[in-house]
Design a protein around this nucleic acid. Structure first.
Lengths: 228, 228
DNA sequence: CACAAGTGAGAGCACTGCTCTTGATTTGCT
DNA sequence: AGCAAATCAAGAGCAGTGCTCTCACTTGTG
């Protein structure tokens, strides 16, 4: 059973995390200062070091939270009861929607790495949820016979090895061609969403909703979904 | 004629820019501190403000330099004497190569916007060089009859307007389908390169050369180049 | 030669992450 | 109940940041 002191400690820790979350959402990763968090929870800066080892430590906790948030959003979208192709498009929209709702968190996960910050081991599992979800959809389509990925001409030996190893990591039944198509699809979705969120589309496709809807469909087609 | 004082001023300004460039390349945008620049050129920090209005001002100058650097690298690659499709692939490789050689500058241009920094007007023209170059290649292919972009099913009215307006900004002869394909191609290239540079490929396609070569070819094909 | 402009240095403000010490409080065991 | 140990919040302090302001000095020009 937890002692009262442990309870208080956990509560203080939670309050610090929450303040960090709020500050991250409002001011971004660079604005996440331990001193401001301390002010927010009514402590002096040195006191928060009782609960959090460092600024990076807090950042890591928030990164994991964010990975889980976007991961579960995408998984929910991908669980719709329709064809794999349509679920792929829905998943893409879920990524975009989450990113638009949480731009700073998106930047933290998928943007420029924070200088001096090295992502610890504990982040790689939650980070894999989104691409893993997309992979299951490709695999589902391939199993259902509704995937017609562009036939790769000739695959160099080292690339073939990477494809095999990655498919193995995913633990799915994916042909090399499908794996290549998945890589293309994921990076294309990532490219479009990051494009929009970093403001590169400003002045051309500014309200990017229509462009996104079209683009995600196009991506699904280039991946090879015949049921999108 | 420039007075000696003006010459000295310009030289000091140049030395500051150079120090900033060096520091940006080594420590990234966040490590770019005016105080370190001052130390580097042998001044005290306050003296730098005689030559540079603020840190953001220095950053803007470096951003413009970087846009011009990548822009000219891509333009050179796109000027090869071969088919538009192959030039498109070369241009993609040029973007990737430049990014790998200048990761911090790439992050500055295409990564997460620096918090609190608002890109001034003067950056938009050099920023447009890369997409404009890609656009000329698509237009060249379309003019040569070697472009077969995926036929867009139905384009919503607002997207059609954005397509027209963007084509107009580019000042090129591009069909709506080609413009859509260009958007797809540019964001896919951007996605893959950013993917690699932000370390998302680590553990799967880590030496990404083979994957990049394959992917850029695939992108060229999905854009519709029949001569790649 | 005198005067104004340009220049560099220094002090200082408010902020950051982080460490260490100090004193108070709470906990758990005898 | 008493007491030692663990825990806690606070403060001072270090090194760093961007930026402002003042002061002395040099330089070019009328």
């Amino acid at each position: 059973m937890p002692t009262p002191r442990q309870v208080a400690h956990a509560e203080a820790h939670a309050r610090i995390l929450e303040a960090g979350r709020r500050q991250l959402a409002e001011h971004g990763a660079d604005g996440l200062s331990l001193r401001a968090v301390a002010r927010d929870v009514g402590m002096v800066s040195s006191a928060v070091y009782r609960y959090v080892a460092s600024r990076d430590d807090l950042l890591t906790a928030l990164i994991i939270e964010a990975y889980d948030a976007v991961g579960s959003a995408v998984e929910t979208a991908a669980a719709a009861r329709t064809t794999p192709g349509r679920r792929f498009v829905r998943a893409a929209h879920a990524i975009r929607d989450w990113g638009r709702d949480h731009p700073h968190e998106y930047a933290l996960l998928y943007g420029t790495p924070v200088p001096g910050y090295e992502a610890p081991e504990s982040t790689i599992a939650p980070a894999a949820r989104v691409p893993a979800t997309l992979a299951t959809l490709v695999a589902a389509a391939e199993a259902a016979g509704t995937l017609d990925p562009p036939a790769p001409s000739r695959i160099p030996r080292d690339l073939a090895g990477q494809l095999r190893s990655t498919v193995g990591q995913l633990g799915l039944n994916l042909s090399p061609a499908a794996m290549l198509a998945l890589l293309h699809g994921w990076s294309a979705i990532y490219g479009f969403v990051s494009f929009e969120l970093t403001g590169q589309l400003k002045g051309t496709f500014d309200p990017a909703d229509a462009a996104a809807a079209y683009e995600f469909g196009a991506i699904a087609r280039t991946v090879g979904f015949t049921d999108a």
